[in-house]
């Protein structure tokens, strides 16, 4: 398996077992959407103005930050840096891992909207 795929698999496994990032990001996404929904009286504005995408972008940023911070705090970033892969592959693995989780969150949000 490609190192990037192994990293993505690991990120998903760790996240689904702890749910820390998913829950925090879901709350953030919910708060942004609710704020917009109550601020704008016309619901069409919420749906068509890109507010949804802005909330997704912000949630995605919080996800990447969460994963990086968690690795730094636990020292697991050192474990990753000891692996014989380039920093570029490491970055891509983490980024795609976060993106996968974000898409799961988006799909769940869309389903319930």
């Amino acid at each position: 398996m490609n190192p990037i795929q192994i990293l993505i698999k690991k990120e998903l496994k760790v996240e689904f077992r702890s749910l820390q990032g998913l829950v925090a990001s879901a709350m953030l996404s919910f708060m942004i959407l609710m704020t917009m929904r109550f601020s704008l009286t016309d619901l069409v504005l919420v749906e068509n103005s890109g507010v949804l995408w802005a909330s997704i972008l912000l949630t995605g940023l919080s996800f990447v930050t969460h994963i990086s911070t968690r690795d730094s705090e636990r020292g697991t970033s050192d474990l990753l840096k000891l692996m014989p892969i380039s920093r570029y592959q490491l970055f891509l693995g983490r980024m795609f891992g976060s993106m996968f989780l974000l898409w799961i969150l988006i799909l769940e949000t869309m389903k319930n909207m």
Binding site: M1, L7, R17
Partner: peptide
């Protein structure tokens, strides 16, 4: 440092696969 959400086997397997 290890991932506490992974078992000892999974942590070692992750390292070996990488």
């Amino acid at each position: 440092p290890f991932y506490p959400e992974l078992t000892g086997f999974e942590n070692l397997l992750f390292w070996l696969q990488m």
